[in-house]
Design a protein around this nucleic acid. Structure first.
Length: 178
DNA sequence: TGTATGATTAAT
DNA sequence: TTAATCATACAA
């Protein structure tokens, strides 16, 4: 969720994530601590934002503990009242929420204007919460680890891998308020 | 300084 | 499947 400059709230439902750990080679903290991955080694609960392919931004939430690189990459979100797939991919998600390196190391907290909240059951009803666990994508090492999760029914997932179950036809989410 | 690489995306 | 595009890391 993001509180925008005009005071309006921008929000979406995270439908796809991947986990990264210092112990495996796909993680930015696998080799060494540098200025650009410093946040990943810092205290949990902050956003780690990195530049991808020199042109995109991707957002993680730092997890575990300080001096240990663990994080969860936010790969896709579904936004109400917006075209499907506007945030279907980590760089697209960052772009839609206007997140860049300026948000790196920022606390994921309401007070900071950018945060993550539990699904408000009064507003949103997950009709088909089936979670698919599968392998991560876009990496050359650590491909065997099944550390990617996404909501099966969401069409705003970045992409499906071979063998992954097909999406359901029914809407996966209902707006009951707003 | 110079070169290689990539947690991506859009187009083919 | 491939090209685009450049911050970052690392070698020299």
């Amino acid at each position: 969720m993001k509180r925008q400059a005009g005071g309006e709230l921008l929000w979406g439902v995270i439908v796809e994530t991947e986990a990264y750990s210092q112990l495996e080679p796909a993680c930015h903290g696998y080799r060494r601590r540098t200025p650009s991955n410093e946040t990943l080694f810092g205290e949990p609960g902050r956003f780690y934002v990195y530049v991808s392919y020199g042109i995109h931004h991707c957002v993680n939430v730092v997890t575990h503990r300080s001096d240990w690189a663990n994080g969860v990459l936010l790969r896709a979100a579904w936004l109400p009242e917006e075209p499907e797939r506007v945030a279907a991919g980590p760089a697209l998600l960052a772009r839609r929420f206007g997140i860049d390196r300026g948000h790196d190391a920022q606390l994921a907290h309401l007070d900071q204007g950018l945060w993550i909240a539990p699904k408000p059951s009064a507003l949103v009803d997950l009709a088909a919460p089936d979670l698919v666990q599968t392998t991560r994508i876009g990496i050359s090492q650590g491909q065997e680890l099944p550390w990617r999760w996404y909501l099966r029914a969401s069409r705003s997932v970045s992409r499906r891998a071979k063998g992954d179950p097909m999406p359901r036809r029914e809407p996966f989410l209902r707006l009951t308020g707003v």
